[in-house]
Design a protein around this nucleic acid. Structure first.
Length: 811
RNA sequence: GGGCGUGUAGCUCAGCUGGUUAGAGCGUCACAUUGACAUUGUGGAAGUCAGAGGUUCGAGUCCUCUCACGCCCACCA
């Protein structure tokens, strides 16, 4: 059964098969000893979905655990996913090779707004309106869609080589996780950390929901500042960029030290703004900048966060003139009611102009707040929503990092983290969506009239369920007499369930075997862009709900950029499709390109050139190994046919070492120590670079070239010299000289020449196999593939490189 | 306004706690090559480490300031 080895590394031929074998083998699962432990309340436990078995971890070592940042179920693999998958896989494979039970928990996120929008759009194309079919039917469509198209991304993560334990895959909306969400909500509610109230929130008219403060983004925009008076009898001019909101004004604020307006403070005026009557008080507030505009601000409590606060302090009426769909309400007067805000603005400016009330318009650079999802301008409006009280949670979360219970890499993000924690505001967690975890709160039917959706057609629906706390039911399970109750219409912010991810995936709130064995996690690896959205909230929730930090180390990676260091974007067309380049160059090449040449928290440039370069490296590994396998087995180098010779015992003889052997062995020891140190310090780039440099330019370029000579038998040598004599050209003289020098060296070492080739073979196998193990976390496919070839001639090697041992540094 | 980061070879970037002639990849130039690999090898050119000042026996590395670029947070009537 002679076997040939191809001349080049053919990733297409091997990768998928290798992955399939890995997954089948069960090596992705951490090693555990199952211990049947009979529980007294087995029945009950099974009912709750608890495991009746318990287990201890094998290999007397601490487990190494990472929970994947769950991609959106509807997502397609993009380069950012490929980056985190690579980094996490490197860690997992490295620790697995260290003999630690290593668990990488995969899963997906239901991604509220994103998914709902996608399905909504699809239905609209089919002529289906979600409001017509209603909540239940719509959700059926979403689930159906999810089953059909969702989770594709997990297949794609496999292509990258991710060694996730797929048997533990979770989805944020599965039963277990939904129960965890309810548990968390009820816990926080009972502790007074969740409350409901009417506050000014960031409302996205397009998504039809409130969003959290940190979901608001800002874009630079040229705007106009309008200087005008409400009517000709009003004594003060004001300046605003949003005239249409002025129908909701309740006051004019000036700086208390502004002499121009001192005499007016405390007075009030009845005004008429294009038909709308208001009473305007003149108030003093220190936050007013007397040099901006006219130094006088029209205060609109219902449509500006700052004004809302002023309104609270001065007890001003909150008149809502813009509704949830971004249109003017009846409060804006007959002429304006129903108009879009932009139309209303234009119309009002025209009115002011023609009535000589408009003094001037000034061009102004303005920061427009927009929705991070759909980039629609945010309307601040008052709305009844659920909030999490963040201060108490933030204090603990800050302390956990300060006391080094959690380490953030790179360190500079700790400052950013503290700053956020210090300035934290309450978190609006209710969303006016249908896809998500419905808020586990029920209202008595008897006390509710005309319950309607906030984002629906009726603007005033929100006022209908202003109930007192004692009237409402908050529970993990629905109330027993469900027919008398009606559940809150809203769902929770996607990040609420994400915040529980490190423990909800392990079975929390139950004390499952997994939870006991693998919580807290070891590392949280994610992008710095979601430090607040996700990492901070996981820490807060973990500490509050489990009394432990959810993970010990946070490793933040940067954004992947193109070769010219520009952001990858669809409009620039400079994005790299990971699946495309995997197909072209192999997953190993992509992995190396994503890891080498980047520092934590630093953006990383990746282009096709770089990937191609690492494809060459994969091939180098393949060919160096091919050489070793063929040479050691005494096979046919030209045909690539493996010979019959096997090596059982890799231990080489110290006595027979040549200078070249000694040098490579010394270097090899150094590299082993260096790479381990780098990996332990999360310096993946340096570890990868070191291995690349060592393998290619030391092992291949120097040692293998030397080894070629050491492997020559007397017979071959004679032949060689004969050849050279016959064709004595200039160039070959050097080679001859080299040979003479070289054999002199060998002579000096007093080596029995006949035994030298055998010893060299052993050194080649040793160095190659150990290098492959070290390279494996970076380039799993080619190393495994080669490992299997090596096993043909060296049967003592482990069944898979995945479960071999990380080479120890001797001496 | 507050904070953070970056500025090192033509390009993209490494360079830990300061220590001999400053590194890599890609690019470039010259040469070589039919027994592992052209997805190759050998060799070369290329840098006042943004600028100025300081600490030190010694600074790309520490401190101060300046300039340029980028990001985050807050505010923006």
């Amino acid at each position: 059964m002679m076997k040939n080895i191809n001349k080049t590394w053919d990733h297409k031929k091997h990768e998928a098969k290798l992955y399939e074998n890995w997954e089948k083998s069960g090596y992705f699962k951490p090693e555990v000893n199952i211990e049947e432990t009979t529980r007294t309340n087995t029945d009950n436990a099974e009912e709750k979905g608890l495991l009746a078995t318990d287990y201890s971890l094998q290999a007397n070592k601490n487990p190494f655990v990472i929970a994947i940042p769950p991609p959106n179920v509807t997502g397609q693999l993009h380069i950012g996913h490929a980056l985190f998958a690579t980094l996490q896989d490197i860690m997992i494979r490295y620790h697995r090779l260290q003999g630690e039970p290593s668990l990488w928990i995969p899963g997906t996120d239901h991604a509220g707004i994103a998914t709902q929008t996608v399905v909504d759009k699809m239905l609209k194309k089919q002529g289906i309106n979600r409001f017509e079919i209603g909540r239940e039917k719509f959700l059926e469509h979403v689930w159906k869609w999810k089953e059909e198209y969702g989770g594709k991304i997990n297949q794609q993560l496999r292509a990258v080589g991710s060694s996730c334990d797929w048997s533990r895959e979770r989805f944020t909306l599965d039963d277990g996780l939904s129960r965890a969400v309810n548990e968390a909500f009820v816990h926080l509610y009972k502790k007074g950390l969740i409350y409901r109230g009417e506050y000014i929130v960031n409302w996205c008219p397009k998504c039809g929901t409130a969003i959290a403060d940190d979901e608001v983004e800002y874009t630079e925009q040229k705007g106009k500042l309008y200087f005008f008076k409400y009517d000709k009898d009003f004594p003060i001019s004001i300046a605003t960029t949003r005239p249409e909101t002025k129908f909701g004004d309740a006051a004019v604020a000036v700086n208390p030290s502004d002499k121009r307006y001192k005499e007016f403070i405390g007075k009030s005026y009845n005004i008429c703004l294009d038909g709308v009557q208001r009473n305007i008080q003149i108030i003093a507030d220190r936050s007013v900048d007397s040099t901006f505009g006219t130094g006088a601000v029209g205060v609109t409590p219902a449509h500006s966060a700052v004004d809302w606060r002023m309104g609270e302090e001065h007890d001003l009426p909150r008149v809502k003139v813009i509704n949830e769909r971004g249109r003017m309400t009846e409060e804006a007067g007959e002429k304006y009611s129903g108009l879009k805000t932009a139309e209303a603005r234009q119309k009002l400016v025209e009115y002011l102009h023609s009535n000589n009330l408009l003094e001037k318009e000034v061009e102004l650079d303005n920061n427009l707040s927009v929705c991070y999802r759909c980039a629609t301008a945010i309307e601040p409006i008052p709305s009844l929503q659920w909030f999490v009280k963040m201060k108490p949670l933030a204090e603990k979360a800050k302390e956990a990092v300060e006391s080094n219970q959690i380490e953030i890499i790179p360190k500079r993000f700790e400052k950013v983290y503290y700053h956020w924690m210090d300035n934290i505001r309450d978190w609006c967690i209710s969303r006016q969506l249908w896809w998500g975890h419905r808020i586990p709160v029920w209202y008595p039917k008897s006390k509710i009239k005309n319950q309607r959706s906030k984002s629906g057609t009726d603007d005033s629906a929100t006022d209908n369920y202003q109930l007192e706390a004692k009237d409402i039911y908050v529970g993990i399970e629905p109330p027993k007499d469900i027919e008398n109750w009606i559940q809150d219409e809203d769902v929770l912010d996607t990040w609420f369930s994400s915040a529980l991810w490190p423990f909800s995936t392990l079975g929390w709130p139950d004390e499952t075997a997994d939870y006991k064995a693998f919580y807290p996690n070891t590392v949280m690896e994610t992008g710095y862009d979601i430090l607040f959205f996700w990492v901070a909230r996981m820490i807060m929730m973990g500490l509050e709900l489990t009394d432990q930090v959810p993970f010990k180390t946070v490793y933040l990676h940067g954004l992947v950029r193109d070769e010219k260091n520009r952001k990858m974007s669809k409009s620039l067309g400079n994005g790299i499709d990971p699946l495309e380049v995997i197909d072209k160059y192999g997953a190993d090449a992509l992995r190396m390109a994503l890891v080498v040449g980047s520092a934590p928290g630093q953006d990383i440039p990746v282009g096709e050139n770089k990937i191609r370069g690492y494809r060459n490296f994969s091939n180098k590994i393949w060919n160096a190994s091919r050489f070793v396998v063929l040479r050691v087995s005494e096979g046919d180098l030209r045909e690539g046919e493996i010979g019959k010779f096997e090596i059982q015992d890799i231990e080489y003889s110290e006595k027979l070492l040549t200078e070249a052997d000694k040098e490579i062995l010394k270097k090899h020891q150094e590299v082993k120590a260096k790479v381990k140190k780098y990996l332990d310090e999360f310096k993946f780039s340096l570890a990868g670079e070191t291995l690349y440099e060592y393998f290619w330019h030391t092992f291949c370029d120097i040692y293998i070239e030397q080894a070629k000579r050491q492997l020559e038998t007397e017979e071959q040598k004679n032949k060689e010299t004969e050849k050279q004599k016959n064709s004595g050209t200039e160039g070959q003289k050097d080679i001859e000289n080299f040979d003479i020098e070289h054999s002199l060296k060998i002579e000096n070492c007093k080596i029995e020449n006949s035994k030298l080739p055998q010893n060299t073979k052993k050194i080649l196998i040793k160095i190659l196999s150990e290098s492959l193990v070290m390279l494996h976390p970076f380039v799993p496919y080619v190393t495994e593939s080669v490992w299997q070839e090596l096993r043909e001639i060296c049967p003592t090697l482990s069944e898979s490189i995945m479960i071999s041992k990380w080479p120890s540094v001797s001496e």
